[in-house]
Design a binder for these strands. Structure first.
Lengths: 173, 173
DNA sequence: GTCTATACATGGATAGAC
DNA sequence: GTCTATCCATGTATAGAC
């Protein structure tokens, strides 16, 4: 519901109605609306950071590690779609949101480092700015939450393949 | 302010305070909060559609027209940053938002057509789904609103060049 | 663990004076 | 064109019964 109507646009009353209980019942389980947000954001961030600790993301050439993290991010995005979607819409308007943005920046920094290493290795073209490239790359990855529907027969791997092909080899035939 | 704190997260009181007037003063000029939203969204959409009617977008090979629309979109995005940012955050939770989403879909459809034509022409690789490719492409373009700051010396053209290089020629050196 | 009832603040919006 | 004052709905959250 936070994703459909926005966090601010969703009231505890809306949530209660959807659950078939009253607002008070929800407050028995969580301290407030912000705790619901925190739990969701933490789940998404934990899953994304787990990718950066996987085998394929810690050994081998930087370009291959970058490809692994890109593909892994697409996988996590699809597996935890609602939580990652919520994470990507956070703007830092509360302490919980600021903390989530801080962790996201850490993730982005990791990616930019891989692009830079790939250029030094000679595997990635040197005529693009690593900072701009990594932002564009993850902009493309993250945009998937805007249109991906699990029930349309398109798998996470197919999307990851398309993305990897376009960004590493280019659309030109 | 709608972009900083979200449309729902911004009250007429917030706007009035920022303007140094009272809420009533604003209501003298506009019919309500939704009209402020509509005016901003219309400005962004009009600017984007104008790109698709430019010379470079209406004649020549489809791949070149696609490149023109991609670059033009980056230009519009930077020129009308607040309005396009707002447009890209709309989720369809009111009639005004639904109307804006409808026009965006029309734009996306236009892009997917160009990718499809480019494949037929043999200029764009045929091993990627045109629908997926066009979504990823514009996901990358649109993601620029998340980080672009006009005052950092990075021009719209430099960003457009980086984007065009990555998506058409690929990152691999 | 869920309910009813309610507190208290803030939301969008309007009336009418100046 | 802006103000003060106000309406009424809805927001988050709590108290206390069951």
């Amino acid at each position: 519901m936070f994703n459909e109507r926005g966090y601010d646009g969703t009231s505890m009353e809306d949530l209660a109605r959807a659950l078939g209980v009253t607002k008070s019942a929800i407050y028995h389980h969580v301290s407030g609306k912000t705790e619901l947000l925190r739990q969701s954001l933490d789940l998404a961030l934990d899953a994304l950071f787990a990718v950066t600790r996987e085998e394929g993301a810690t050994s081998g050439p930087a370009a291959d590690r970058l490809d692994h993290v890109l593909r892994g991010s697409v996988r996590v995005l699809v597996e935890e779609l609602p939580h990652v979607t919520l994470l990507l819409r956070v703007r830092g308007n509360s302490e919980v949101e600021k903390h989530a943005l801080e962790r996201r920046r850490e993730f982005d920094h990791h990616i930019a480092g891989l692009v830079r290493e790939g250029i030094v290795d000679g595997d990635i073209r040197s005529d693009i700015d690593p900072a701009v490239a990594s932002r564009l790359l993850f902009g493309m990855v993250n945009s998937i939450v805007e249109w991906y529907k699990p029930d349309r027969g398109l798998t996470a791997e197919e999307v990851a393949d398309a993305l990897s092909t376009i960004t590493f080899r280019g659309m030109h035939s």
